[in-house]
């Protein structure tokens, strides 16, 4: 994927297996967000192909990809401000899940319960605190009924206690049979929850493997962990 002359992501190939949680790490600007935005159709990749269950989805419109079962949360959080939390999630159920109003309302109630947003359900989404907004992103993606969820730093800005809660929710989601790709800077989260991890740096994939393999990979340590090595040993 190129933005003008800048190759934000190049020559990266990876796959996600059913039921798996794939961690994605890399320094700021490595191209993680760009890569997943290509996957869900926000960017049209300048080269390369993307397949979902053997179907080529490269260049499809994002709403189509969403309806096919691929939903992403946004790193920068984009709630529909003038709508309540409930209505935000309802949009995902109605449009992403292609449901009728009655079914969508039921689905929305369930999802809101699952992510623990009940107390905020009828608040305007512009007025709720950041941790709740992060959950709202997740809820909206879930409501679409997608089988694959792409979470872009969905725990950024949370305190350790809120992270634990979020991890619990992710485990519940995984146990319901969904696959996840989790972009996260918080090592504790990625290491703890991922089945596999891929590492990006300057737009290229520099490592892939089980969490413990990746941590010990030399190029990863050099490119990314370098100064964080001490904290990693503690963890």
């Amino acid at each position: 994927m190129k933005f003008g002359a800048l190759a934000a992501v190049q020559m990266v190939s990876f796959s996600l297996n059913p039921g798996e949680i794939l961690g994605m790490i890399g320094p700021n600007g490595a191209g993680k967000t760009t890569l997943l935005n290509c996957v869900i159709g926000i960017h049209k990749p300048t080269s390369g192909r993307i397949f979902l269950n053997q179907i080529d989805i490269t260049g499809m419109k994002p709403h189509k990809i969403c309806r096919m079962g691929l939903a992403k949360t946004s790193q920068i959080m984009e709630p529909f401000m003038a709508m309540t939390v409930f209505e935000n999630v309802l949009v995902g159920a109605l449009h992403g899940g292609r449901m009728r109003m009655r079914l969508a309302t039921e689905k929305t109630e369930k999802v809101i319960e699952l992510v623990g947003l009940k107390q905020y359900a009828y608040k305007l989404s512009g007025s709720i605190p950041v941790p709740a907004r992060r959950r709202l992103e997740l809820a909206r993606a879930l409501a679409s009924g997608a089988n694959i969820l792409l979470l872009d730093e969905n725990m950024a800005g949370l305190n350790p206690h809120e992270i634990d809660e979020a991890l619990e929710i992710l485990k519940k989601i995984r146990n319901s049979g969904k696959s996840l790709i989790v972009i996260e800077h918080i090592m504790r989260v990625v290491m703890g929850i991922s089945d596999r991890i891929i590492v990006l740096n300057y737009g290229s994939k520099i490592a892939e493997g089980f969490p413990e393999e990746v941590v010990n990979d030399e190029s990863v340590i050099k490119a990314y962990l370098g100064d964080k090595l001490t904290s990693l040993k503690v963890a």
Partner: peptide, 8 residues
């Protein structure tokens, strides 16, 4: 954009 990726 958020609408589009939510399936709208």
């Amino acid at each position: 954009t958020a609408a589009e990726i939510s399936g709208v």
